[in-house]
Amino acid sequence: MLKHEELIVKYLDKSCTREEEEELLAWLEVSEENKELFSSLSSLWLMSKAELEDDLETELALARFRERIGTEKSSIREVQKVKLPLLYKILQVAAIFLILFNVVYFLYKDDKENEIRIINRLLTADSKGKFILPDSTVVWLNAHSVLEYPEHFAEDKREVHLKGEAYFEVKKDSAAPFWVNADDIKVRVLGTSFLVQNYDKNDYVETILTEGAVNITSSHFKEMAIVPNERVLYLKKGDSLKCEIVNTNYYTSWINEKLVFDNLSLANIIINLNKWYGVDIECSKDIAESTNMSFTVCRESLDEILEAMEEIAPIRYKHEGYKVYITKKGGK
């Protein structure tokens, strides 16, 4: 197996070190082919992991997976429509061997009577995508995100599953509420615009409403209504909620083609950059609120933007993986 394929496997099973993760991210930036390989192997891993039921099977599947991609990584196969429940048996034994060179891949799951075609959309680092769901709902998917939804929604319910971050403009349908499943919480809407962030690396799940009305619910708290311009954080540790009123433009600007800052505080710039680049920028409150800047972000890398910020303001930065630390020049 090639070194970078091994890094992808370690990244997917969460066993890579910070240095290996940084090496993998750098390798992904080299070419689109690298990103396509990562997407295909990620899709395969997510598909096979969803079908394996216990730790022993997962370990055996990982071993077979590593062996397979070392010998036939360039093969392309299609997932055929198979009668259930036979499909589950086939997946447990054979799906781990499928290499799908497409960000969109298909599974068939049993709803006891019918076959359901499940679509998964996966975006890698520095990728953003806009697409339309079967009900005409518009979705913007941010980097490092996976959205799962059926090819056709049920008549009385529309349901999707999210890992990562997405902004939704939901098509109104009072007869079929729209549900976003984000692990510990669920967001229920009829027709509105809102954002949900659910990254494994974060210790919270974020919901921000731009217009309309949504309710969030969980086994840990009663159903709660959110008003426009409200940001609600579900804190995974402690099962608590934190609510605040925000300028939603700062949190949803990543869906646009560019960011324009006109004498904006560093505190608000950081919110935008976090969403745009999928990072976590930390800066002391006194520096963030007392420093204002004006500049535009188009297709520049994060380091290019941070270096430019150093030129126009008395700050310095240190970039470590997904974390960026901003301090005052001359300070510790």
Rank of each mutant, 00 (worst) to 15 (best):
H4V: 07
E6Q: 12
E6H: 08
L7Y: 12
I8E: 02
V9L: 10
Y11P: 01
K14G: 04
C16D: 09
T17F: 03
L28T: 04
L28F: 03
N34T: 05
K35L: 09
E36K: 15
E36L: 13
S39T: 12
M47L: 10
M47I: 03
S48G: 01
L52E: 04
E53I: 02
D54Y: 08
D54L: 01
E57I: 00
T58S: 10
E59K: 13
A63E: 14
R68T: 03
R68N: 07
S74G: 02
I76V: 12
R77I: 03
E78P: 00
K81M: 06
Y88C: 00
Q92W: 00
I96E: 03
I99N: 11
I99K: 06
V103M: 00
D111V: 07
E113A: 08
I119K: 04
N120Q: 05
S127M: 13
S136P: 01
V139K: 10
L141T: 05
N142M: 04
V146H: 06
V146D: 06
L147K: 12
Y149H: 07
Y149F: 13
P150V: 08
E151I: 03
E151V: 03
R158Q: 08
E165W: 06
Y167V: 15
K171P: 00
W179E: 09
V180L: 07
I185Y: 05
R188E: 13
L190G: 07
V196S: 04
Q197C: 08
N198M: 02
D200H: 11
Y204A: 05
E206K: 15
E206N: 09
N215R: 09
I216Y: 05
M224Q: 15
V232W: 06
L235W: 08
G238R: 13
L241M: 12
L241W: 11
C243Q: 14
V246D: 09
T248V: 15
N249Y: 15
W254V: 11
E257Y: 12
E257R: 15
N263V: 07
N268R: 14
I269M: 13
L273T: 14
L273A: 12
N274F: 11
Y277P: 13
G278L: 11
E282D: 12
E289K: 14
T291H: 07
N292P: 00
M293N: 11
R299D: 15
E300L: 04
E300D: 12
L302G: 07
I305G: 01
E307K: 14
A308K: 15
E310P: 02
E310D: 10
A313Y: 03
H319V: 01
G321N: 05
Y322A: 04
I326C: 05
